[in-house]
Each structure stands twice: as C-alpha cells, then as structure tokens.
C-alpha cells in the first residue's frame, strides 16, 4: 500500500465520499460536491467551447481569412441568446425556427429510413419451427404484433383483442425486466469505478495481480 501524494487524487477521494455520503442522508458535503460538479462542468465546457469552437471556427475565419458569410450564423446565435433579455426575447424565435427547420430536415428522412423502414424490414422474417433461428423469428414476429396491439387504444381491450394485448404486456414486461437488470448492472459498475479509484489511485493497492 502506498498512499498517493497527488493533491488532485485527494480532492477526488474527498468528493467521492462526499457524494456517497448522500446514501446515509442529505448533508452539506453532498451539497458542496453537487454544486462543484455543476460549476466545474460549465466552466470546463465554456473554455473548451471558446478555444475549440469560437476562435478556430469563427474568429480566425472571419477576422483573419475574411469569410464574412459566417457573420450570419453568428448573428443567429446571438439572437438565440437574447431569450434572456425579455425586451428582445422575440428575436430568438427566428433563430429557433431556423434551427428546428434545419434539424428536422436533416433528421426526419434519415430517421424514417434507419429507425422505421429498416426496423419494419427486420420483422419480415422467415418463420419456421424447424430451426432455432426460425423459432426466434416467430417469437420476434408475435412480440412485435402483440405489443403493437397493446398500444392500439382506439378499440377496447376485450375478448380476443384483449387477450392479444395481454400477451403484448408480457412481452413488454420481459423487455422492462431486461432493462432493469442492465440498469442495476450499470449502477454497480459506476460504484466499482469509484472503488477502483480509491483502492488503486489513492491507496496504491496493486489489484492487477
């Protein structure tokens, strides 16, 4: 064991335990860690945004290379910021209109292709009881069908229709169960990350062997 002498590691350990102390109960150390996280994230983001974006993508092209056309998106960006000035907040709507229009134009056709049509295509499968893949395809086919029936609310879920919708609920529950299991795994992994940091980086315990 060899305790780290790096002050940044000590600060990391302090904030790790400050955040974990919330599991006992809310306290000033947790609040401090929470506020520092927000402050540091915004400060870090602003500096990187300024040095990686504003200077090389706006300042240098406009003022050193004479690409004056970039003034237009810069003005739109400033209009967006005017949301915080009540008197001129209406100007932000023009920038938002442009942003929503361009964003939708880029995303909608591609989403239709990648997330609707291709997914529909993936449910048109070769159904058979003679192979494992064929049985899997049957499960996928009936799963999609029954879940879609469950989400059809224009008809009362009664009789055969209600029965099919109930099967859809079972498929959904299995899906939620898988997601929940994965979520537990994810949360534990985050804690493992902190344990490794404290044991290896702070206490200097060699765990690799």
């Amino acid at each position: 064991m060899h305790i780290s002498m790096n002050p940044w590691v000590w600060i990391g350990v302090f904030f790790t335990f400050s955040v974990l102390s919330f599991l006992y109960k809310d306290n000033p150390f947790y609040k401090l860690a929470e506020h520092v996280t927000v402050g540091v994230s915004i400060g870090y983001g602003l500096v990187i945004w300024w040095t990686n974006s504003v200077i090389p993508r706006f300042y240098i092209p406009v003022f050193e290379q004479g690409q004056w056309i970039l003034i237009i998106p810069a003005i739109l960006g400033l209009m967006m910021v005017l949301r915080i000035v009540p008197k001129y907040s209406w100007l932000s709507r023009y920038a938002i209109c442009f942003s929503v229009g361009a964003g939708s134009g880029m995303a909608i056709p591609r989403s239709m292709q990648a997330q609707v049509l291709r997914q529909l295509e993936a449910t048109m499968l070769n159904l058979s009881f003679t192979s494992g893949a064929g049985i899997n395809n049957i499960i996928i086919f009936f799963g999609v069908l029954t879940v879609l029936v469950y989400f059809f609310f224009s008809k009362e879920h009664k009789g055969v229709f209600g029965g099919v919708a109930k099967v859809g609920i079972w498929f959904l529950m299995i899906g939620f169960g898988a997601t929940f299991g994965y979520t537990v795994m994810a949360r534990l992994s985050l804690f493992i990350g902190r344990v490794l940091f404290v044991l290896q980086d702070f206490l200097g315990i060699n765990l690799a062997g």
Binding site: Q119, E121, A122, G175, T179, Y182, T183, A186
Partner: peptide
C-alpha cells in the same frame, strides 16, 4: 454502450444495422 442502454440496441443488432 452503458448497460442501461444495452437493451435498446438489440433491435438494431437483429436488423443487422
């Protein structure tokens, strides 16, 4: 992906995307 998002990816794996 993080484990939280893993279940969301299976439809794309099944479709071959």
């Amino acid at each position: 992906v993080t484990a939280v998002s893993a279940a969301d990816l299976y439809p794309y794996i099944q479709s071959g995307q």
